[in-house]
Write a protein that binds this DNA or RNA. Structure first.
Lengths: 221, 221
DNA sequence: TCAGTAAGAAAACAATCGTTCGGTAACTCT
DNA sequence: AGAGTTACCGAACGATTGTTTTCTTACTGA
């Protein structure tokens, strides 16, 4: 229905459902701003991921529907579905890193232990706020590894390194660590991850938020 | 191809690929043993899950292919795809529980701390051996929770309770716990889970196996 | 004014999926 | 021997998917 309609002065995209409120009034991006759609696609995919809670229903057509464009338009920015999801993973990782460094830099640079906690909290809050995203981030590498493809440790490693550096700063500042900072980072990581995964998936006994701080305290002598 | 063939004295199932070695010589179960197929389906689904590493490709047709039966035959044992996956989750949970209780009972009943460690190790080994299964077990509840359906904490709670009881036995035997056994169980759970998830998905720095024992030791005063 | 290109849509393709419907062979019980 | 049941299969339906091909429109620079 409504085929061959000239477009441009008319809502973009086919919205077969919900002609309800006001039809999604997408307007075509102007010259040289075509890349903006790429981000809109990633954000639409992110929204969809939140609603669905998993990578499963994250289809090309679904994303196109969420953004309000035609499925074919996605192929201008992503080679195929896998590339779209890879792009989403990378995008979400960048958001996580941004949150962590923002938390880190919001504190007095000399407050090294506070900065460790700030990063941990930022990480935890990200996982709490967007469990679906978090699961995608840390679950994606697995499928890759199983298929023997290159792992996507890159962006993740950045996150990990950020923890290590935070602990290193503490050591340099004279705080005594019970374990090497690399191992400390690993411990924190495991705990944050485990808490997040358990909390959103299982909900046995809520590991209260303090427990992460306790862990950090425990690492220091 | 090969339609309308009388069956019974002839390999069951359509194996369009791999007429290679010897065609999968499935024979029809005898009278009253129809339920055996149910388990064969679950095991086939389990194998598929290991290969695929995720719930994604776990389709009715794929499972049927893996077992060597017709897709329609699955519907005699499972109402639909969701029921099949639910059944798989339950089945795998029972395997995990069986491994844990076996480890627990293999020890001298009075060695209460050893039994805690044995359960932790059994849990860890299950996760290491079948990461895909493990991920399915603890990821499944999430989608449910998001869709507002009843959570499947049942079988999982059994696992959790098993940890609690193990710690309770320690307390009764006179060992001093630094935290209540319920919280201790939660701690162990989070760590085992976090380690498993990180280890198979991310592979940053291998949290060595001793770290779990360290955690258990830490819980005791 | 006109060629060139950016931005995006419509429509169709093949593949795969879940599921249903109706069958057929083998076994058991009377 | 016949009726009923168990244990499956074959074929098809409709829906959805990823992807490709072929547009149309709008803007730019010369």
């Amino acid at each position: 229905m409504r085929a061959g309609l000239p477009f441009g002065r008319v809502p973009l995209g086919q919205n077969d459902e919900m002609p309800d409120d006001e039809t999604i009034q997408r307007v075509r991006n102007r010259w040289g701003e075509g890349d903006r759609l790429r981000i809109e696609i990633l954000e639409g995919a992110g929204r969809l991921l939140s609603e669905l809670g998993g990578e499963d229903g994250l289809t090309i057509r679904g994303v196109a529907r969420a953004v309000g464009i035609a499925p074919a338009s996605i192929y201008q920015h992503f080679a195929d579905r896998a590339a779209l999801i890879d792009g989403l993973v990378e995008y979400e990782f960048s958001l996580l890193m941004k949150a962590m460094t923002a938390a880190d830099e919001s504190l007095d640079p000399t407050d090294v232990m506070g900065r460790v906690r700030a990063q941990v909290h930022a990480h935890r809050d990200f996982a709490d706020a967007k469990p679906g995203h978090y699961r995608l981030l840390f679950g994606k590498a697995t499928r890759r590894a199983i298929r023997g493809e290159r792992p996507v440790n890159g962006p993740l490693f950045e996150v990990f390194t950020s923890f290590i550096e935070a602990f290193d700063r503490c050591a340099e500042a004279g705080f005594a660590l019970r374990v090497p900072s690399r191992r400390a980072a690993s411990l924190v990581f495991v705990s944050v991850y485990g808490r997040a995964a358990l909390l959103d998936g299982v909900r046995i006994e809520r590991p209260d938020d303090d427990s992460l701080d306790d862990l950090v305290s425990l690492i220091f002598a």
